[in-house]
Simulated scan of single mutants.
Amino acid sequence: MEGNIIGRILFYVGIVVMVVGVILAYSMANVTNYGGPAGNRETTIQWPIFFHTAIRAVIAGLLLIGFSEIIKLLHSINSKTGLVKGTTTNTGATDHDKDEEQPTEWKLSKTDEEKIYEAYADKAILEIIPSSFEGYCIVKLQEYDGPLDPVIKVVDIGGLSVQEVAGAVTRKKILDWYKEQY
């Protein structure tokens, strides 16, 4: 599913609530005074009533639009990370191991790079290499105080945080690719 229908519906309902609310606030604030023996009619607007009602309608509409944006954001995160496809099975391997992934050309974004630096803040990162499989990186790490003995980690950067790849098949594919390249 390309877009999220609930997010769209909430967005449009929020706009309708704001527009209709302002129109209703205007109609509720209009007061017609009949005065004098001739029955003269005078229409005035009660500004406190108008602003009170209009502000409530605008706030309600903005809340609905805000909820729609949250739903759209969650939907985009779900489609980006593939939470449904990447669920963990009882053996500890992910469903990604079952899929035959084809190598692709992709670039590491600044936010993904920041996630890696944040995840391994206690270690010296020597090199970050995007693998041929999108969403996976090879990270060379070393202890700050230890001897020069780099450790190679295969990480998945597709989620909200960096996770080491637990699936043996995916890990082996990426390490084989790394050994061929370097």
Rank of each mutant, 00 (worst) to 15 (best):
F67A: 09
L74R: 15
G35A: 12
I49F: 04
N33W: 12
R8L: 11
Q163V: 00
P130G: 13
N33S: 09
A29Q: 08
I77Y: 12
V20G: 01
V17N: 01
K140I: 15
W106L: 12
W106M: 15
G61R: 03
I15S: 03
E127F: 05
E114Y: 07
P130Y: 13
Q102W: 10
A124Q: 13
A57G: 04
V31F: 11
V169I: 14
G21E: 04
I157L: 05
E164S: 10
V22M: 03
K153G: 03
Y117G: 04
G66D: 02
S131Q: 10
T43V: 08
L141C: 12
G21C: 06
T87Q: 11
E101C: 04
I70E: 08
K80N: 06
E118L: 00
K115Q: 05
H52A: 10
Y120H: 15
D99P: 00
T81V: 08
K85D: 08
T104H: 09
D99R: 11
R41F: 08
K85E: 10
L10H: 07
D122E: 13
T170S: 00
F133L: 14
N78L: 11
G159Y: 04
T44R: 12
A168R: 12
M1N: 12
P150V: 06
E69R: 07
G159I: 00
L141Y: 11
Q181D: 02
E69P: 01
V154P: 04
G14D: 10
M28F: 14
V58A: 01
I65N: 01
I45R: 06
T94P: 00
N40K: 08
T170H: 00
Y117P: 03
D122R: 11
E180Q: 04
Y182F: 04
